[in-house]
């Protein structure tokens, strides 16, 4: 079996635009995944911290929501970035998944894993759960489409009442566990992908990924759990100032 000769490098072989060939390459698509993942991940952290204000009561939380709305540039900037990120992230994930499935059409009868983690092997599934969650979540708490008693602007009410009934809180819990898996592998995988690795700090990568994942997951889980256990309740009187958006 002879190795087929490659065309001789002529110095002119790069006919496609460098950016296009980067996006087509395996590493390029990985990097897209990592950078968009980083954006999403950053958003999730900030979002969780913002949402913590729910424990300060309806006034604080709603005021925070208002404050955000008073900065439309920021709000829409972030929304745009998120949308682009999700789209690119999902595109990259789908494309890489295809490549990887094609790379081994015939599998093994027996397989034993040694180093890979449950999280790393289930990225596709945790990712899909997250995608479904995001769609649901937007319809639920942003547009209110699937919310039983959505009140535009009363974020506190929307969350607390939205997480009280039926399968919604359960789905939130499941999604947050998926988020935990996705983030744990994602965070340090991302560092590896963009080349952040040094023998001296590699251990820190794990610790960092575990810590940040734990913070986000615990924080996020606390909301549905607090509602379900009655820790968070709607205030007796609903005479809270409702600032409608300008």
């Amino acid at each position: 079996m002879s190795a087929t000769a490659l065309p001789a490098p002529t110095g002119k072989e790069q006919t496609t635009h460098p950016a296009a060939s980067f996006l087509a390459s395996s590493i390029g698509r990985k990097v897209v995944m990592a950078l968009t993942g980083l954006v999403l991940f950053g958003y999730v952290v900030v979002h969780m911290l913002g949402n913590l204000q729910i424990y300060l009561g309806p006034a604080a939380l709603n005021a925070y929501a208002v404050k955000l709305r008073e900065m439309p540039a920021l709000l829409w900037g972030v929304r745009g970035l998120l949308l682009v990120s999700v789209v690119l992230h999902v595109w990259a994930a789908a494309s890489l998944t295809r490549t990887n499935m094609d790379a081994r059409a015939v599998g093994y009868r027996r397989r034993r894993n040694r180093e890979s983690s449950y999280a790393s092997r289930t990225m596709r599934w945790s990712g899909v759960i997250l995608l479904l969650f995001i769609v649901y979540h937007l319809l639920h708490l942003t547009f209110g489409t699937v919310h039983p008693s959505f009140v535009d602007g009363d974020v506190y009410h929307n969350v607390v009442s939205g997480l009280q009934v039926g399968v919604a809180p359960l789905f939130y819990v499941v999604a947050m566990l998926a988020l935990g898996l996705h983030m744990f592998h994602g965070v340090w995988s991302l560092m590896q992908t963009v080349g952040l690795s040094h023998p001296r700090y590699d251990r820190l990568r794990y610790a960092f990924a575990a810590f940040i994942t734990a913070v986000v997951v615990i924080g996020n889980l606390s909301f549905p759990l607090a509602v379900m256990t009655g820790l968070l309740k709607e205030p007796a009187s609903r005479k809270v100032a409702i600032h409608t958006a300008p």
């Binding site: 079996m1 002879s2 190795a3 490659l6 065309p7 001789a8 490098p9």
Partner: peptide, 13 residues
């Protein structure tokens, strides 16, 4: 040299 087309490599021969 294989890449440059100057060597024709025949393995498993």
């Amino acid at each position: 040299q294989v890449g440059l087309g100057k060597v024709d490599m025949h393995s498993r021969h």
